[in-house]
């Protein structure tokens, strides 16, 4: 964790504070009393232990916490990739627990964008085909203007015809960001999207996520261990042992680091 800090980011955060904070009006995604338990009895692990959290629309939220604290679990459940033991999650006001697999899949396809740590792309498809994939699966043709805007934002114009194997790790993650944004989703989730990148590539990807929020009005929720990455967010939610233990608004990497030191990350 610390080694990330020794290298100052080549691209500094896109002045997150320059944009005035939006009025906290709408909630893009929310969890209510979310409990996720793995195993039973003695061996039971409470990955999520009564978590209630809102992710506001048009904002960039980071989720931090020690390893095993339940970050991924929270994100996966809010994103409809897994189901809670109890409690509820909703996306854009829709309670996910009531949805069939088919409806849930369509909701993910149409209203959620994903960026994983790695292996995001389909190797047989070109960058462009990868980006269009969710739309393609829906049988919709992309909104040209939006699509061009997204491509421009992530700076991939010249790489659209390449296959993932012909792209660097950073470029691949940028394609993944573009894909997550392509269907103009309600919310974009990333689980350590920069975890496998060097700090310069990571910085680029984070800049694009920041831009997506600022320029395109998107909502982003990102799990990260990296204080620098977290500093791109508008707000950080801290998890420990499956509970929310703290929150930080308008973070800077120093404040995050400070907090992490205090609580013994």
């Amino acid at each position: 964790m610390n080694n990330t800090l020794q290298l100052p980011p080549l691209i500094s955060p896109a002045t997150p504070h320059a944009t005035p904070a939006r009025p906290i009006t709408e909630v893009a995604a929310a969890a209510r009393n979310a409990v996720k338990t793995y195993g039973t009895g003695e061996a039971a692990v409470h990955a999520l232990d009564d978590v209630t959290v809102d992710f506001e629309r048009g904002r960039f939220t980071a989720i931090m916490g020690p390893s095993g604290s339940g970050k991924s679990t929270l994100m996966q459940n809010v994103a409809g990739l897994d189901t809670l033991t109890s409690g509820s999650v909703s996306i854009g006001g829709v309670d996910l627990s009531s949805l069939s697999d088919r409806k849930l899949t369509r909701l993910r396809r149409d209203r959620i964008g994903f960026i994983f740590q790695s292996f995001n792309l389909v190797p047989t498809l070109t960058a462009k085909e990868n980006i269009e994939l969710p739309l393609d699966l829906a049988g919709r043709s992309p909104d040209r203007e939006w699509f061009d805007e997204v491509i421009r934002t992530v700076g991939l114009e010249s790489r659209l015809g390449h296959r993932p194997a012909e792209l660097s790790g950073g470029q691949q993650q940028r394609v993944a960001v573009a894909r997550a944004l392509a269907s103009r989703p309600e919310i974009v989730f990333g689980d350590e999207p920069t975890g496998n990148l060097d700090s310069s590539s990571g910085g680029e990807v984070l800049t694009f996520l920041r831009d997506a929020v600022d320029r395109l009005g998107q909502t982003v929720v990102m799990v990260t261990h990296d204080p620098v990455a977290a500093s791109y967010a508008d707000r950080i939610v801290f998890l420990a042992d499956g509970r929310i233990v703290d929150e930080m608004h308008q973070p800077t990497s120093d404040r995050v680091l400070d907090r992490m030191k205090r609580f013994g990350h």
């Binding site: 088919r102 369509r106 396809r109 292996f119 994939l133 969710p134 699966l137």
Partner: peptide
């Protein structure tokens, strides 16, 4: 497997 998992996550239906 992993690729199919990603496809399912980003919205590929089971029947697809």
């Amino acid at each position: 497997t992993r690729e199919l998992g990603v496809l399912r996550a980003i919205g590929m239906e089971r029947r697809q």
